[in-house]
């Protein structure tokens, strides 16, 4: 049935799908965490992802700080700027219609992208692969760095899941997602928790950006092109469903990769077709619990 298709191509695309899925998963997880607690659709997410990659590039080119320290430093910096943004811009919008947060974060995304484009142009900046080489598996060649991205993203997603589902901190987060006022009557500083949560969510975006830098080129628009798909992922998984976001991310990355093998013409639209079907069948998302429908 699949005669014309070489295993090389098939596994190559599966790997590419997993790579893309890794970014979808990490980004949509951050979005879902932020949306769950703050009801903010964080349109700055793509810019914060780009910022992560860009900070890594700046650290390397101006301070000589390499990939590994950047993997920690850049996300922390993105998280810090995110927390400042939350305090100055998002907190005053709390309690207003979702649209305000959405527009405000979108505006910030445009500003950040514009500034980077103004200073560094829109052509991609190269970032050297910190793990050159690879391993020949017989049926395909597996570059080490790509393997690292998939493994690291899986560990990050599972770690985030454990943090949220199986720790006290996560219990506060889940509880505050449901009934923030009640959590506050227990003496929890919920506004501060929102700031930290926003920092964590966008920190994940920054981390994804650093991971992406050696694979994709560092460019101002690297985030916005990815975010269109990531928003589709979040909608399919269910806004606010953290596990759903991650699983859907990997799944759709794979679907996209496989579509490239079997019907390349549909590869760029397959995720949106999924979105339409899932909106039709389960409007609140595949992984949304019934109560949030």
């Amino acid at each position: 049935m699949f005669e014309g298709i070489s295993t090389q191509l098939l596994f190559g695309q599966v790997l590419l799908g997993l790579i893309n899925g890794s970014f979808y998963a990490m980004l949509s997880m951050g979005l879902a965490i932020i949306f769950g607690l703050m009801s903010v659709v964080n349109f700055t997410h793509g810019a914060q992802y780009m910022l992560g990659a860009f900070i890594a590039w700046l650290l390397l080119n101006y301070l000589g700080i390499g990939y590994w320290p950047s993997l920690v430093l850049a996300p922390v910096l993105v998280a810090l700027t995110g927390m400042v943004l939350e305090r100055l811009l998002l907190r005053p919008l709390q309690g207003l219609d979702h649209l305000y947060g959405l527009l405000a974060t979108y505006a910030v995304a445009l500003i950040v992208e514009g500034l980077v484009r103004y200073k560094y142009g829109s052509t991609g900046l190269p970032y050297d692969n910190p793990m050159p080489g690879g391993i020949n598996l017989g049926f395909m060649f597996l570059p080490y760095y790509r393997l690292w991205v998939v493994v690291f993203s899986l560990v990050t997603c599972i770690g985030t899941w454990i943090l949220i589902e199986h720790t006290k901190l996560g219990a506060y987060l889940r509880a505050a997602n449901e009934k923030p006022q009640i959590v506050e009557t227990f003496g929890i500083n919920v506004p501060k928790m929102m700031t930290l949560t926003y920092g964590f969510g966008v920190g994940l975006a920054g981390l994804s950006g650093v991971l992406a830098a050696p694979i994709y080129q560092v460019s101002p628009s690297m985030g916005s092109s990815l975010m269109i798909v990531v928003f589709a992922v979040v909608v399919i998984g269910g806004m606010g469903s953290i596990v759903g976001a991650a699983i859907t991310g990997y799944m759709l990355g794979l679907v996209e990769g496989l579509t490239k093998v079997f019907y390349p013409e549909a590869a760029s639209v397959v995720i949106f077709m999924f979105m339409i079907i899932s909106l039709y069948l389960r409007p609140a998302g595949i992984f949304a619990d019934k109560e949030s429908v």
Binding site: A171, A175, N177, E178, K179, D289
Partner: peptide
């Protein structure tokens, strides 16, 4: 009054 038990916990 509404007891406010958390369903995700």
């Amino acid at each position: 009054e509404e007891r406010a038990i958390f369903s995700s916990l």
